[in-house]
Design a binder for these strands. Sequence first.
DNA 1: GTACACTATATGCCATGGCATCTAAATGGA
DNA 2: TCCATTTAGATGCCATGGCATATAGTGTAC
Lengths: 158, 158
Amino acid sequence: MASKWSGEAAGLQSFFADLVRCETRLYNALNDRLRERHGIVTSQFEALRYLRDHPGSRVADLAAEFAIGIGATSKGIDRLEKHGWAVRRPNPADRRSSLLALTDDGSQLVDAAETTVTDALAELIGDTLDGPPGAATRQVVSTLRSLLERDQVGMPTG
Amino acid sequence: MASKWSGEAAGLQSFFADLVRCETRLYNALNDRLRERHGIVTSQFEALRYLRDHPGSRVADLAAEFAIGIGATSKGIDRLEKHGWAVRRPNPADRRSSLLALTDDGSQLVDAAETTVTDALAELIGDTLDGPPGAATRQVVSTLRSLLERDQVGMPTG
DNA sequence: GTACACTATATGCCATGGCATCTAAATGGA
DNA sequence: TCCATTTAGATGCCATGGCATATAGTGTAC
């Protein structure tokens, strides 16, 4: 039955609110540092890192990974290409799509930016995520992500 | 020292990535349900709930709560006012600002929407957040939020 | 091989948030 | 009291993402 007991309901609402607030503030904080030191923002760092770790991906792969629309992903790749950090190569197996890859500049950028991110996260959340409760939290959030992805929860339309 | 050992660095990066992916998908999923059933999106639900629970707040209070800019907050209130869900009342103590409150329509809307959110969260994350690891996770995320707020991490400029 | 349906993604319009700027009002001296 | 400074928030311009649509290429049935 829906809304069975309100104690649990309030708990889940609080958890969701805390989650969103953490994400917003951490994302903003990383944005500030990445913009200042590398001229990119967090979403671009994540895309560059994904391309580094999954060369030959297509636009739809990035869209699925980040749960954003295909159109937005295409435009994001446009911007990375304009800056000379990524390229679209023809896909011999399907000429409707392209295979994405980093340029050398893009590779160097993502490696440098990764150090910034690593340091920022160590400073911002390292202590809190230490220890057994931290380990449990990492595990639970990882599991939750897997479940949401398995069920295709929250995938935009286009 | 920065980037001491890469195991922990990779762990924090994974955790952050998982956190952002969970937030994105849950936010999107709530958007879908709230838009369909109540004609609002998650950010509006959260603003309405905040106003219900903190009547007489000012624009800056909402901006601090949600870690978004003052300008964006002001525009968000404009939209809530246009829909007749919130009002700006003159602040007798400081005529530069207004005191915000829900209308009756706004109150009814937020109560109805809260049921939708409660049910959606129970369905989407209830099982995963159950049990001792779930309890540890709620605690850690709550603590992390408090620390980020205490240190004013990730507050936009304007 | 041709027509039809389907898929991948590029593009256009709109909504929202960031940041800079503007204005009104409060505050703090001289 | 009066002016300079600060503060609260409103507004304008820009960037980004969602969604709808357009376009090109693929696969299938015949």
